[in-house]
Design a protein around this nucleic acid. Sequence first.
DNA 1: ATTCTATTTAGACTTTATTCTAAATAGATG
DNA 2: CATCTATTTAGAATAAAGTCTAAATAGAAT
Lengths: 91, 91
Amino acid sequence: MSFPETFKALADPVRREILIMLKQGKMSAGEIGQAFDMTGATISYHLSQLKKAKLVIESKQKNFVYYELNASVFEEIVLWLAQFGGNNNEK
Amino acid sequence: MSFPETFKALADPVRREILIMLKQGKMSAGEIGQAFDMTGATISYHLSQLKKAKLVIESKQKNFVYYELNASVFEEIVLWLAQFGGNNNEK
DNA sequence: ATTCTATTTAGACTTTATTCTAAATAGATG
DNA sequence: CATCTATTTAGAATAAAGTCTAAATAGAAT
């Protein structure tokens, strides 16, 4: 895993919104794009950043490209952040 | 807390390195700067970004400005990330 | 009060990111 | 195979981030 890539990917609000959408499950690039007022090319760019950071996994079916969360990478980020004391689970 | 600010702050490798240094405890801007091959002005810029994101807290003493980690904000980020399944603690 | 030390601010420059339009690809359908 | 649909790639334009030098601030020391 590469933290530079991962944090840069998480730094953009559009990409964070995409990740939240993907909690519902697998979605195609087109479906994702409909939620934003941007061209498909731009969405494709953001998806490529998320993919590069391994935050999402892609799969192809017919002429659709589906994206889904890659939970394991999130765990690694959580572990990295925990070193700063974010793991004190007192209220 | 503002996630845009926070993730943007974490996206830069210099700033992540500063945070790791601060695990050792409070350090002055000058001490932090010595660890990097950059001008004090640039370090000051990075510290301001970390401060804006509330990842660090500053305090003044004599003519030194000290920085230290703000653990509570890290916890909030961990919680945000946990929604993506980063909390499955199986090996 | 003048000077010294530590840090920040201002402004310019450079690099990196984001976005668009237009063209390219790739697979599906008629 | 010609065309349609979904997505990506290329290239240009704009915007944002990072870095520097020089100047400003603020407090400490003489």
